[in-house]
Amino acid sequence: MSATPLLELRGIDKSFGPVQVLRNVALSAYPGEVTALVGDNGAGKSTLVKCISGIHPTDAGEFVFDGRPVSINNPREAAGLGIEVVYQDLALCDNLDIVQNMFLGREKRSGIVLDEPTMEQMAAETLAGLSVRTVKSLRQHVSSLSGGQRQTVAIAKAVLWNSRLVILDEPTAALGVAQTAQVLELVRRLADNGLAVVLISHNMNDVFAVSDRIAALYLGQMVAQVRTTDITHAQVVELITAGRSGGLGLAADTGANGNGAPADSTTGGVS
């Protein structure tokens, strides 16, 4: 779609004490596209997300946001740029309703009084903009929502704030089939509305269903970032598990093995 990335990371290094978690990582996220970030457990996905959202400072490397070099030192600065993260464990308060959750920490006020009508209206408009039709009332407690609906609220919360880049950490991990489809549809709609979306997922079906690009991390290194249409299921699995697949990924120690996709891949897809 668009030629210039909204967020571009170059040469990101990050160590926790003696352990180097990210090594010279580059990542681009384009507006209007879903970039899937894949990698095995411990590959550094979560660390990378926390670096982008300002929770962890990086040791080296540069951030380019919207063509300008920026530095992100804390979550507030990330939010200021329009970067929102939807975490795996959702971070919703069960005892509050949908509107209260969406505006938590950033309530609209008139004077010292909460401006409930404005908040309710904005929440309704945001959900309508995402074509969410599944919630009955905006004033129902989040505790009464299904897993998919909660995820929807968490995502809607992220896009409420003129956000431009939304990072989703395993949004479908705990969902059933129908709810997964619902959330993926929502993820696609975010991108179609012009946002840059980074989707972290272990589920190859989800990744191929919804993403435009795939970025694969392997042991802290970005081994490939390619268009989803240019890569196969099996290749992605190889990138995740071995760090290379055919001509993609890390340079092989024993020489490259041609440029075709290896046909002997036994994995038909990771769940």
Partner: peptide, 11 residues
């Protein structure tokens, strides 16, 4: 919000 197409019918 401004990034999402606002339609008049919300929940």
């Amino acid at each position: 919000m401004s990034t999402t197409a606002v339609t008049q019918e919300g929940p």
